[in-house]
């Protein structure tokens, strides 16, 4: 098993030009930046191009030279794509998420729905998800979970004091507390093995929907920009606060479908771990950051709102596909 996957298949002119530049050292076409400015901010072409550019900072791609990570033309393209994505997110979050205080926004996230209102992916999977749906869900989420916690590590040098210590405490747990076999990335690979999926890094990139790429791209975007450190903290806090109850439902789904012990283990671990992470994120990381830098409250709120927006879009796309009897993947498993 190699750490690197090959470049994905292009999904439009931007990703086509980018793959050409990376594979054959072609120049980016002169209209790439204007295309980036006018592209669909949540569409396949922009989201894939952004995902490819971010991947250069993680494991990279087989056959793509490491020097591309800091190529000025590619960084310029990345900035144009990010501006389009970020502008759309800022506009949509302002509409959909009018919260003005972080403590209220997090308190709202701490309230569990007493019953499923039909929009909850984890409720659906717990109640009636099929093994096939659990496999599709895991294949999609693998784009994140095989690099789980990596996008958030970028923020550590941008924090200080309590926020930094709290963030590192959570990340240490995510990275297995010193045990490679307990890395959450590894626990997810073990889950995938139970589900009969390929555990190679980015194996399912071609299959991944634009909605899934947007979820991961948000993390990379916020992690890689110091100016967005408050939003990254809000993003991670949202995931940790909402994860524990959702993980319990997914563990139930894995038990009900007989998915296997590692599949159950991954979600059971997240029930317990994220109950702790929620505490650290709210009190130490968010609390510590805002005590030190109170002006970042609006950025933390943006990170919360953007995460809710993109996770809702992801859930809605899966549930819509399954209700219509379609696969939620671009390519069948």
């Amino acid at each position: 098993m190699t750490a690197r996957s090959g470049l994905p298949k292009p999904r439009g002119p931007l990703s086509q030009a980018l793959v050409g530049a990376l594979r054959h050292a072609q120049d980016m076409p002169p209209d790439a930046l204007s295309r980036a400015a006018s592209a669909d901010p949540y569409g396949d072409d922009l989201q894939l191009a952004l995902n490819i550019l971010y991947e250069l900072h993680y494991q990279g791609f087989d056959g793509v030279g490491d020097e591309h990570e800091w190529d000025p033309d590619l960084l310029r393209l990345r900035a144009a794509l990010e501006a389009t994505f970020l502008d759309a997110l800022r506009g949509d979050v302002a509409q959909s998420f009018p919260a003005s205080r972080v403590d209220e926004a997090l308190s709202d996230l701490l309230v569990e729905p007493a019953r499923d209102d039909g929009t909850s992916l984890s409720h659906h999977l717990a109640r009636e998800g099929t093994l096939g749906q659990l496999r599709e869900h895991a294949a999609l989420r693998s784009i994140y979970h095989l690099k789980e916690a990596d996008p958030h590590a970028w923020v550590i040098p941008r924090l200080r004091g309590r926020a930094k210590a709290g963030m590192v405490a959570v990340e240490y747990d995510e990275y297995g507390a010193g045990h490679a076999d307990q890395l959450h990335q590894q626990l997810f690979a073990d889950l995938m093995t139970d589900l009969g999926l390929d555990t190679s890094y980015n194996h399912y990139l071609d299959a991944a929907s634009a909605e899934m790429l947007a979820v991961v791209n948000l993390m990379s975007l916020l992690g890689l920009h110091r100016a967005l450190r408050g939003a990254l903290v809000g993003q991670f806090a949202t995931v940790e606060v909402t994860s524990s109850p959702g993980s319990r439902r997914l563990a139930d789904a894995m038990r009900r479908t007989g998915a296997g012990p590692a599949a159950i283990r991954f979600h059971d671990e997240h029930v317990e771990a994220d109950a702790v992470h929620e505490q650290l994120m709210r009190h130490e990381v968010v609390g510590g950051l805002l005590a030190e830098e109170p002006d970042l409250e609006k950025d933390v709120l943006f990170g919360i709102g953007a995460t809710v927006l993109l996770e809702d879009r992801f859930s809605a796309a899966l549930l819509a596909a399954w209700r219509e009897g379609r696969s939620a993947l671009r390519e069948p498993l």
């Binding site: 709202d108 996230l109 701490l110 309230v111 569990e112 729905p113 007493a114 019953r115 499923d116 209102d117 929009t119 909850s120 992916l121 984890s122 409720h123 999977l125 869900h137 989420r141 994140y144 979970h145 979820v215 949202t238 995931v239 909402t242 994860s243 524990s244 109850p245 959702g246 993980s247 439902r249 997914l250 991954f266 979600h267 997240h270 029930v271 994220d274 109950a275 929620e278 995460t307 809710v308 996770e311 809702d312 992801f314 859930s315």
Partner: peptide
């Protein structure tokens, strides 16, 4: 997290994790 308050649906936090963790 079983201590958490519960709301009548549609709740404000009806699963924002996309089944993640």
């Amino acid at each position: 997290t079983s201590h958490r308050r519960r709301s009548r649906p549609p709740g404000p936090a009806a699963d924002k994790d996309g089944g993640g963790g």
